[in-house]
């Protein structure tokens, strides 16, 4: 068991290592380097030289990689080109804001997804299922920027219930932030909830068709007891991993939503730094976002491992 956990964590680090190489090589082989792209070829001798020196671009690539990686491990990603300040200072508040947004969406989304998924599975092909499934298909397929735009149009502009655009400084208290984040959270949660609800549905349906559920019915176990004892634990276990993947995938959607709502999170930073051709920040963002992805998946793996008696004994025996 311990061995397996350590192995998973190690694999996570290996993935991150490869990610760091990919981003480094990626920014390296694509035309232009940090200085030429940032200065948009307006730079001549002196200015360019200065920039190179500042970023240490005048040493060979692998040396730069090593020193960059070593610093990155300690949380030091170097200097942002546009803000002219340490990247970690730029990142800090942004990470916090995005985390607020994403976790609010996850905490609202997961329970709703569970309930909807279970209802649709238990009432399979009946009215509740058909109704909810139709809605989820819409919620799932419509891009975030459309649902966000529609939310703003309807709730903020026509009904004037909530602010449509987040106009707050990067550093505000949670309470001040709250009314501002309701719409973005809804926009993110919608698509995620729909995805998860569908996964839960099919997982529950699969388990409902299993021999052991048939056996429980034949044993005379009352319906709801059967659902909670025999069905759900087995149905939700495999769903954990898939849910994690969905959450991680939605990081991309968070980027778009933040732009629509002008929300000062990591997502907008992605757009800003790419528009500004601020490659060091982009590299840092890639690593940060990849680590989030890896840790969510790792968490899901460990959770599954802990909850699944089958895997547990398997490992003990080995």
């Amino acid at each position: 068991m311990i061995f397996l956990i350590i192995k998973r964590i190690l694999l996570g680090f290996i993935t991150l290592f490869i990610v760091s190489i990919i981003t480094f090589v990626g920014t390296e082989v694509l035309p232009g380097d940090a200085c030429t792209t940032y200065l948009e070829r307006q730079a001549f001798g002196e200015q360019l030289e200065a920039c190179y020196r500042r970023l240490g671009l005048n040493v060979p690539a692998y040396e730069r990689y090593v020193s960059w990686a070593l610093n990155a491990i300690q949380g030091d990603f170097g200097y942002s080109l546009s803000g002219e300040m340490p990247i970690k200072d730029v990142l800090g508040p942004r990470i916090k804001n995005s985390l607020v947004l994403a976790s609010a969406a996850i905490f609202i989304g997961i329970p709703i997804a569970l309930i909807l998924g279970i209802i649709t599975a238990l009432w399979r092909d009946k009215l509740p299922d058909v109704a909810i499934s139709t809605v989820t298909i819409f919620a799932m397929t419509i891009p975030e920027f459309i649902s966000a735009t529609l939310l703003i149009l309807i709730i903020a502009i026509w009904l004037e219930w909530l602010p449509g655009i987040v106009i707050v400084p990067t550093d505000v208290s949670f309470l001040e932030l709250l009314p501002n984040i309701i719409l973005p959270v809804v926009a993110i949660a919608m698509i995620m909830t729909a995805h998860m609800a569908r996964m839960v549905r099919s997982s529950v349906i699969q388990v409902m068709a299993s021999e052991y559920v048939q056996m429980a019915i034949l044993k005379g176990v009352p319906y709801w007891k059967m659902v909670f004892k025999h069905v759900l634990p087995n149905a939700l276990l495999p769903a954990i991993n898939v849910v994690a993947l969905t959450i991680a995938w939605l990081l991309g959607g968070v980027v778009v939503t933040e732009v629509v709502f002008n929300y000062p999170g990591l997502g907008r930073l992605v757009i800003e730094s790419i528009s500004n051709r601020d490659l060091p920040t982009v590299q840092a963002l890639a690593i940060i976002l990849a680590s989030i992805y890896v840790s969510i998946n790792l968490l899901a793996d460990l959770l599954t491992l802990m909850l699944n008696p089958r895997l547990k004994t398997l490992q003990i025996r080995k």
């Binding site: 290996i14 991150l16 990626g26 991309g252 980027v255 992605v270 790419i274 992805y293």
Partner: peptide
């Protein structure tokens, strides 16, 4: 599969934006 996993863990939008903005 390790490499594919690593690519999966970089959000597609970041990678796409980078490529498009440079190329």
């Amino acid at each position: 599969m390790r490499i594919v996993d690593a690519f999966l863990s970089i959000p597609w939008i970041l990678a796409m934006l980078l490529i498009v903005s440079l190329l």
